[in-house]
Design a protein around this nucleic acid. Structure first.
Lengths: 213, 213, 213, 213
DNA sequence: CATGAATGAGAGTTCATTCAT
DNA sequence: AATGAATGAACTCTCATTCAT
């Protein structure tokens, strides 16, 4: 009698689980995300989660892999054509900003993992972050060689960009709420959209790397 | 008879609990921190935690209040004497950096809370962060009025500083590990101490705020 | 209202759990015994089992320790006074038989563990069995030295006695059922009580050890 | 297309399953044996097991039937020719010993079932054991009538033999381990092979049945 | 103030079994 | 005959929280 029978499409089910898991993990964090709730959100049996993924950690890894690989792919893809380091740097920032805004789970997942040096998925986070950073590092190095970037410490600048963009995205609700409280003096940028923010970061980044000391 | 009776000093016990709770929450995150382990670390009975604090969330709030108030107090305290906005800004950054490095739970706790707009303690995080930000905001405003800071968006710059410093602290283990792997080309700043980082951030901050466009 | 509030007597609760656990494990075997059912039988909360015992295996070990130590103690206690090896041997058999009959979980638990060389509790079964066997071994050795026992292989004789007694106890229901089916020719000893069986084993044991080859 | 289709030979698949099931059940016991692992060991789909056997219990029954029938067949087969009860008895023991040693799952499965009067397969164990016992019973009766066996209680002697042989086989690992620990005084028969044991049991059995009281 | 016993809800995970193809 | 997807019930174990002393 009207049992919710499911699609019997492995790939679809797996993707369904990952999709909801991304959302759930980013909302609640690893520890607070419950497999029960995940299954319910997916509309399928809890055991299916374990059928497709070894265990909770395995699922989380799959989720992070998906997310991290996608942002990396996107950045590489969208910045193939740039010739000049300035344009490359600008591309990097803008692409990351756009992606993170379109997939707001990314900043949340990333900050959580980074905030304890990858407690849950040390190795993968590690590898993935390294690749993304290597990309950024290259841009700066090339710029330095060409003489257009000065005094860069790539590691710090990298976290400066990621930190700014990620925090501006994850704190958006907080900032909107603060704005509503009406303290006229304080501008929490609650109306800024991500492009404005990216523009500002890019502008400031260029200042930082200019030769003027 | 002669049961192992503890201190009978309410304030001391309460502080003992908070101290260990700060450590525990920052190590494991809110959800994974267990009250059992906390009691054990404190060397006192589990029920006492609930005697002093309504519940887990209440304890966490107390923890965060303590932490946030302390950093705020420290910053105000250490930067009373500065006259010039530049010095104030530099003081803000340097004090935060030093404090965060001395109390490495701060970055971890803060990033976690900020990464989901204060899921656990919305109101308090909110209030507290606002006060700290107001401080920063004032510095920039004053600098702008005096003509020494140009084109500041305080909200963004605020998260730029906090993001950079916090992430550089929480990712230190990750960066050391990466360095050990020996890819010569990539410098993960694994040896930088927090003062070097603060210096660099200050230097770049000044460049960002200089009039030179 | 009328919540089943419990006794708050640790020792009593612990013993209650062990008592029911002995019964449950011997009825269902380790794997099929459920902690849910155990708690229910004890009339207390499932979590209490884990409060008193680390985990299922820990409980099982406690159970086996209790059981094995008791039989050992009983045998030593009841056979202190015997002087002659024949009497000692007879005492060993009779005591074991009586005990096993009074605590019918013993044969069941023992046979199960022995049937896979102590899969669950290798070390403890091992130690405990060794001590009991050492006792038996001594009796035979002394008898041999005194010239009243001939050609003993203690290990085999040990399992001969334990095997016979244990199996006669655990198969009692089976044998009764078989008897009821009325095949007149076959006597399943369904009416024998344990003393008859012990007597018979003792008599035959003496024949085996007599010098008459 | 070209899905990995298996043999399509019902009888072969069925036998394959039984063979692996015998091994699995004897290694892990009924409750701990998982149908997942069974299917994997067989290299075929889990659903096939349920296609061929109604359910887990049904499979177990098939396994036990196979095993019990085989030992019975073997014993009848190998002892057709004996004329004298002594030779028959000797044949029974030796055949059982050899078989049990060659198929070490038998003692394990048998002891487990007997240790709770056939909790899983009451009826079948029952029937099967009765037939084997009837065989043994006949031998003794004939011997008694011919005056060469004295004072037999077949049921007890039956379990004496089965108990001794089965336990000596299942405890072999335990006894080897004990021997390695080097308590010189205690001989655990770790080196005895099954023929030595059978010889000893036969010798002692004859003593037991001799007229000499 | 302090303790240890007790609890209920829920966590992740496994498993025998069935269904659709 | 054979497969892999799907299910529901059970299982061990943990946790925040409360109660009686």
């Amino acid at each position: 009698m009207s049992k919710k029978i499911h699609k019997r499409d492995a790939e679809a089910s797996k993707q369904l689980i990952i999709t909801h898991a991304i959302e759930l993990f980013s909302q609640k964090g690893y520890a607070s995300a419950s497999m029960d709730e995940l299954a319910e959100r997916c509309g399928l049996n809890k055991a299916m989660v374990f059928y497709y993924f070894k265990n909770k950690k395995g699922l989380y890894e799959a989720v992070m892999r998906e997310v991290l690989e996608e942002i990396q792919r996107t950045i590489i893809e969208e910045n193939k054509t740039h010739k000049k380091p300035e344009a490359e740097l600008e591309g990097f920032i803008r692409t990351y900003a756009k992606f993170a805004c379109a997939h707001p789970y990314l900043p949340s997942l990333l900050l959580k993992e980074l905030s304890d040096s990858g407690a849950v998925i040390p190795d993968m986070l590690f590898t993935s972050m390294r690749q993304l950073f290597a990309l950024f590092n290259d841009i700066l190095k090339r710029g330095e060689e060409k003489g257009c970037f000065h005094d860069p410490i790539p590691m710090i600048l990298y976290f400066m960009i990621l930190g700014t963009l990620n925090l501006m995205i994850t704190t958006k609700p907080l900032r909107i709420k603060a704005a509503k409280l009406g303290d006229i003096e304080i501008d929490t940028c609650d109306q800024c959209d991500i492009d404005d923010i990216a523009d500002y970061v890019i502008k400031k980044m260029k200042l930082m790397l200019k030769e003027c000391e």
